[in-house]
Simulated assay, not measured.
Amino acid sequence: MQAATAAVADIVRTLTPWDALERGHIAETLRWLSESDDIFRRVKPATPPRHLVSYVVLVDPDSRAVLLGLHRKAGLWLPTGGHVDPGEHPLATARRETAEEIAIEADFTVVGDAPLFLTITTTVGIGPSHEDVSLWYVIRGSRDREYALDPAEFADQRWFPLDAAELPTADPHFERFLAKLTAALLV
């Protein structure tokens, strides 16, 4: 196992699963990491057909809300983030994507600088589908501050309450992420 893959496996081993699905995703991710070092996207959009992503969720813990953007390619309301570059540490990806897509420095003081959540998702949108293994990082924001999500990536942006009765069409694991985030904020 190459050093970059081993670093990702170390991160994944530290995650406490929220539910049976996340437990399964963690187990499958560890199996995948033990069998391949080809975990970083090399050719857009789908080579290799499963690769690593760092989501970066901007959270205002005081107003209990998250900022999502309407992703142009996926047609879903998503947090910022992106594919982990070959050899890049997922936390470095989270910092880079925050700078690129929100134009701020990432502040990991909500739940720490380790990912809160892990998912495996088959993508939708333009081009061939593939699987994203996503590490969900949480950064601090404020509803009182103006943020401009990268217009090349996002057509719109909105704050959503953590306890929203109705959520937008989002990542299929977003409601589970919100439940885990809400529980983490109560600690």
Rank of each mutant, 00 (worst) to 15 (best):
A6Y: 13
T16W: 13
A9Y: 01
D37T: 11
A7G: 10
I39R: 00
P17D: 00
P17T: 01
D38V: 07
D19E: 09
S36H: 06
T29W: 11
R13M: 02
L33W: 02
T16A: 12
E28I: 13
L15G: 00
D19I: 05
I11G: 10
E22N: 04
L15F: 01
R31C: 12
H25L: 04
R23G: 13
T14Y: 11
T29N: 07
E22A: 06
S36N: 09
A20T: 08
R23L: 14
I39F: 03
I26T: 13
W18V: 01
E28W: 15
S34M: 11
L21S: 07
H25T: 03
G24R: 15
A20N: 09
S36F: 07
S34H: 10
L21R: 05
V12F: 00
R13G: 03
A9R: 02
I11F: 10
L15R: 03
D10M: 03
H25Q: 07
R23H: 15
S36P: 05
V12Q: 00
I26P: 10
S34W: 12
G24E: 15
D38T: 10
G24P: 13
T14L: 14
D38W: 04
L30V: 05
D19F: 02
F40M: 15
W18M: 05
G24S: 14
W18H: 06
A6E: 15
S34P: 06
G24W: 12
A27F: 15
H25V: 01
D10R: 11
I39T: 04
R13K: 03
D10Y: 08
L21K: 06
R31E: 12
A7E: 08
R41V: 12
A27Y: 13
S34L: 09
A9H: 01
D19N: 07
D19R: 03
I39D: 01
T14W: 12
V8M: 01
A6F: 14
D19W: 01
E35A: 15
A27M: 13
D19C: 05
S36Y: 07
G24Y: 13
D10I: 04
S34K: 08
A20P: 06
W32R: 05
P17K: 01
V12N: 00
T29I: 09
I39E: 01
D10G: 10
A27L: 14
D37Q: 09
I11W: 09
I39Y: 02
T29P: 04
R41C: 09
S34C: 10
T14E: 15
L30D: 02
E22I: 02
E35G: 13
D19T: 07
D19A: 08
V8G: 00
L21A: 07
D38C: 10
T16H: 14
H25Y: 07
A6K: 14
R13V: 02
I11R: 11
E28V: 11
R31H: 12
A27P: 08
A7F: 11
A6V: 09
T29G: 05
D37H: 08
T14S: 14
H25E: 06
T16Y: 12
R41K: 14
E22T: 05
D10H: 11
D38N: 10
A9N: 03
L21G: 07
E22R: 03
T29H: 08
A20R: 08
A6T: 11
T29E: 05
I26V: 13
S34E: 11
I11V: 10
I39L: 03
S36R: 08
T14M: 12
